[in-house]
Simulated assay, not measured.
Amino acid sequence: MRTMIVRQAANRFALYTSAVVFLAGTSSFLASDASAAETIRITNGEWQPFMSKHSYQFGVNSHIVAEAFKLEGIDVEWGFFPWKRSYQVAKTCQNWHASATWWPAQETLESFLLGDAISETSFVFFHRKDRPFSWQTFDDLYGLVVGTTLEYDYGTDFMNRIENYELNVEWVADDETNFRKLAANRIDVFPNDLTVGLAQIRASLSPDEAASITYHPKEFEKSTLHLIVSKQCDKAEYFVEKFNAGFRKLKESGRFDAMQKDLANGVYDGKGAAQLN
């Protein structure tokens, strides 16, 4: 009798142990499956507050891209490079699938699929307040020193004039250097997107330097910025569809509008005291 009781207890223990092992294995499998989220690898560059490794959530456009994909169950892995390299390494789809965020230039349309427009951009001319400036055509820039940033495209007409030596331009490596040169009276005007320019001024100049700079309201080269996915990628259409679907959800939820308010309030750029009038 005692032997039978011991055997029954042993059998019950064996069943209990097997159940625990099975449940633990199932739990481990589920956890592993849940953690294996799909990932898209996207190159990026410096143009704060839209994109920057130094900005909150890597800039507002980067934030929008990441949140749109997140709503579709896709993680984003970012890689920051100089703009030319950012474009080229994404184009081959060897290690990176996409790049954020670009104008819909003809060259880009030939090699990439574009997601829905994330933001609108245009250029204005920044200048010093004590150097009055007005313009209607690029001919009005004759005799002025124009600051320009390497690897930037300012539009076909503007770039053609540079190539034909019709504009006196000085190239530097980044926008912030151009703003410092403008504040120091070393250039006369500098073209940049208004939102980008104001953010860079707040982040890179002293209050006194920032207060010395204003801009002419006339815009040129209006365009939009897009996530671009290489046509070389097998899942290019899939990634664009997923981004667009997540982007629609982001807008419908009101979070996109909240991000735009944060953009206007300087959340995505460095902090500075001065505002331009």
Score class of each variant (00 low, 15 high):
1 M>N: 10
83 W>T: 10
38 E>P: 01
129 K>P: 00
214 T>V: 06
35 S>A: 14
263 L>A: 07
248 R>I: 02
134 S>H: 14
20 V>F: 11
231 K>V: 04
149 T>G: 04
54 H>N: 15
223 S>Y: 00
249 K>Y: 05
217 P>I: 05
277 N>S: 12
160 N>Y: 06
24 A>I: 12
51 M>Y: 05
6 V>E: 10
113 L>D: 07
17 T>P: 05
158 F>L: 05
269 D>Q: 13
30 L>D: 07
76 V>D: 00
205 L>A: 03
137 T>V: 09
267 V>D: 01
96 W>V: 08
87 Y>S: 06
8 Q>A: 15
53 K>W: 10
111 S>L: 07
63 H>G: 01
203 A>Y: 00
147 G>A: 07
97 H>C: 09
14 A>G: 09
155 G>N: 07
154 Y>W: 05
193 D>T: 04
164 N>R: 13
86 S>G: 15
52 S>T: 04
218 K>Q: 12
51 M>R: 02
234 D>H: 11
2 R>C: 02
89 V>T: 15
271 K>H: 12
60 V>Y: 07
35 S>E: 10
168 N>F: 08
4 M>C: 11
237 E>W: 00
216 H>P: 01
6 V>A: 13
91 K>W: 05
158 F>P: 02
77 E>P: 01
3 T>V: 13
12 R>K: 09
28 S>M: 12
13 F>A: 15
245 A>K: 13
103 W>Q: 13
174 D>K: 09
229 V>C: 00
164 N>P: 01
73 G>D: 06
110 E>Q: 14
255 R>S: 11
258 A>C: 07
150 L>P: 02
7 R>Y: 13
156 T>N: 08
6 V>W: 11
59 G>D: 04
69 F>L: 11
204 S>D: 09
183 A>P: 03
83 W>F: 11
254 G>R: 06
190 F>W: 03
165 Y>L: 12
185 N>K: 14
255 R>W: 05
191 P>C: 05
58 F>S: 08
150 L>D: 13
69 F>R: 00
242 K>L: 06
77 E>M: 10
217 P>W: 00
239 F>L: 14
